[in-house]
């Protein structure tokens, strides 16, 4: 009898509405390491998976947008804590996908720090972006930010974890829910990050993560009428044109974050939160 153990490989599934289903399409694509070894069979998400994810995200908007800013900050901090506890797993996954040890470490560290950064902004961005406006009538006139609702995010291709976190965090800290398409070539961390979210008191449906082919799904992310804003992080002029044209059907906001270096300090600022916020201006009559 031998004591050699058969390693248990993880099945990477997608994350919709707080659950980990397989793609409804039953399609997969093999993810290969630099040396050509198959690392995992990733779900090749379909437009129906995306539709289901939007339904889940829409259902979660009511509760999440009404969660107090303080609690949203606490939950983001909790995500960072959970990620910290699983650093080694994420470093190992990044290395599998061709990132060297030193860079993998710094990417995971930066991801954790980025979550802490946005956790801190949770109850502060309102102050800097809101205003009492001078008007020449007997009104008290003020503008405040409100979350837009459902945000679809085409995550950066080059940065499997940090790029993902850097786009999810500012969307959800502002009370939005989101549907994210992970990097097609570096998708492992995205699904493991879904497990982190799942263990961090983030309500089901607030973040939904799909894996699949960008060219196939970009159009869906841009055209869905029940999506309020679309964020894209890569792409040629043709893709930008396509996204903007399709987004016009329901006048959803288009946020382009192309060719950014997600590792720098410049990749985080409260304007990324503002990107997916709507300004509401109220005219309140006062006695003159």
């Amino acid at each position: 009898m031998t004591n050699e153990r058969v390693a248990v490989a993880k099945t990477y599934k997608i994350y919709i509405g707080g659950k980990f289903p397989r793609t409804e399409s039953g399609r997969y694509y093999p993810l290969e390491s630099a040396k050509g070894a198959v690392l995992a069979n990733m779900c090749r998400g379909s437009r129906k998976d995306f539709r289901n994810a939007v339904v889940a995200a829409r259902a979660a908007t009511g509760g999440w947008s009404k969660t107090s800013a303080y609690l949203r900050g606490q939950i983001l901090y909790r995500i960072a804590e959970m990620l910290e506890g699983r650093r080694e797993q994420f470093i190992a996954e990044l290395q599998l996908q061709g990132v060297n040890r030193r860079r993998a470490e710094s990417e995971v560290n930066a991801s954790i720090d980025r979550l802490i950064y946005y956790a801190g902004w949770a109850d502060k961005y309102q102050q800097i972006f809101s205003a009492v406006n001078p008007v020449s009538s007997s009104h008290f006139n003020f503008s405040v930010l409100e979350p837009m609702g459902v945000v679809s995010i085409l995550a950066p291709e080059s940065s499997g974890l940090l790029g993902l976190v850097s786009n999810i965090a500012p969307a959800i800290v502002g009370g939005n829910t989101c549907v994210v398409l992970a990097s097609q070539s570096k998708p492992l961390c995205a699904i493991s990050f879904a497990e982190v979210l799942h263990a961090s008191d983030v309500p089901g449906g607030v973040v939904n993560i799909l894996t699949g082919f960008k060219p196939e799904l970009t159009g869906q992310f841009a055209s869905h009428m029940d999506v309020n804003a679309v964020v894209y992080c890569d792409g040629t002029v043709e893709i930008a044109k396509k996204v903007q044209e399709l987004a016009a059907a329901n006048i959803k906001r288009v946020v382009a974050r192309v060719a950014r270096d997600w590792s720098g300090d410049s990749a985080q600022d409260p304007y990324l939160i503002q990107d997916t916020q709507e300004t509401k201006t109220t005219w309140h009559p006062i006695g003159s």
């Binding site: 437009r47 539709r51 939007v54 055209s223 869905h224 009428m225 029940d226 059907a249 329901n250």
Partner: peptide, 8 residues
């Protein structure tokens, strides 16, 4: 061919 929203 486009998924719809209850808003409309």
């Amino acid at each position: 061919g486009v998924y719809q929203s209850a808003d409309y």
